[in-house]
Design a protein around this nucleic acid. Structure first.
Lengths: 211, 211
DNA sequence: CGGCAGTTTGATGTTACTCAATTTAAGTGG
DNA sequence: CCACTTAAATTGAGTAACATCAAACTGCCG
């Protein structure tokens, strides 16, 4: 993408261990991060010690498009697995923004998408039962995974632990466990070894909140 | 703002009655709407007949900044009071976008703000008790109202019905009623005749989820 | 006056939470 | 490979928060 390689100190890869914090809300960040490998999630830490997970970042996705225009990070980000990421400094990005207005337009599109996704999450949390929320999350994530994969079966890498599902959907891990167990007993999905398989997509979509 | 007035058919005012739908999710929309007078709200209609209110639009605010770049409306919008609005056609907007890149940058900023607000709403719904959610909503709205007003007391025009609060926060109107009644009995806020007064801001912020 | 929309109150039901214990899985060092 | 440690998933019992249902009450408007 970048014909004339940037100096090594600016596009260095960073390795981060599972559960480590990559970005902290309110802290300055030097640029845009791309998740070359592994999974991460973004969240908002609350005053009462809890957190709301807002988004899961898949391998290959941009971590923080907002960093292109904002000094301070809006959200915190944590690694869910061991992770490898690459940093593009804001100065370089803004150079590109100025050089080609289409880049800014693309950023606008990305933000619009994120706004829609976050709105759908809010709707799922606010209006859905535990089962509906979980069905929504599974469908949402598997669609995103499928979109960046050539393979077209119903098996997906799924490194979320129950606590992540819980913190994303406003449930407790215990309740997530029960509902997931129900779904598995009813042969709607199966989950083992970090691989999720959709056994009855029809049923899962019937449970879900859209379409 | 616009020195050479546009042709009358393009910047006509529209009057809309209370409870009428202004924009429907998925439908094409001609341009960006500005809410000249009255209140509106944006929401996502769900498959199960429920809806998630995502945002309240104050008089003077832009209804749908996204319409500048998107043909289809992402969200539905309804008038909460009788409303007056003005439409700017997408073609005109996009002309300005091309003419001055700072306009697009401003749009990006607006979207980033909306993303943060929606994320905070999701966090409130997902992680807060009914009381915390309501405190959050009151603080959020009154801050926005105060930001566009010269008057600096603790009394705010507040045309929300309980059903709006409920649909925004994932509660039932009945429960909203009880919690609001508690807050009023404890002299934290008072609400009458569509005017909300914050009696004990300290306490309200203690209940809320941020800061 | 009658009717409608919105609020309030009470009684009862259910979902999801809390707390606590047990099981399973995943490492780690010997 | 096994003993040990630690994190995660699972299960159960009791409970709290919020939903649901139903009814009465209020203000407003035709």
């Amino acid at each position: 993408m970048d014909q004339h390689g940037s100096p090594p100190h600016s596009d260095a890869f960073r390795r981060v261990r599972r559960d480590a914090e990559i970005v902290s809300r309110g802290h300055a960040c030097r640029g845009v991060l791309v998740l070359c490998d592994g999974w991460a999630f973004q969240y908002l830490p609350l005053a009462n010690g809890r957190r709301q997970i807002l988004n899961f970042v898949l391998p290959g996705e941009v971590l923080s498009p907002l960093a292109a225009v904002r000094e301070q990070a809006e959200f915190s980000t944590k690694a869910m697995t061991d992770v490898q990421l690459r940093e593009f400094r804001r100065a370089d990005i803004q150079g590109k923004l100025r050089a080609d207005p289409r880049v800014l337009l693309a950023l606008t599109e990305v933000l619009a998408d994120k706004l829609r996704e976050t709105s759908e999450l809010a709707a799922a949390i606010g209006q859905g039962s535990a089962e509906e929320r979980i069905a929504y999350l599974i469908l949402h994530l598997t669609r995103r995974i499928a979109a960046r994969s050539v393979i077209r079966d119903e098996r997906y890498r799924f490194p979320l632990r129950q606590v992540h599902i819980a913190d994303a959907l406003g449930l407790t891990p215990v309740h997530v466990c029960r509902v997931m167990r129900l779904l598995q007993n009813r042969r709607v999905v199966s989950l083992a070894e970090g691989v999720l398989e959709i056994l009855d997509r029809r049923e899962l979509e019937r449970i879900g909140l859209w379409r």
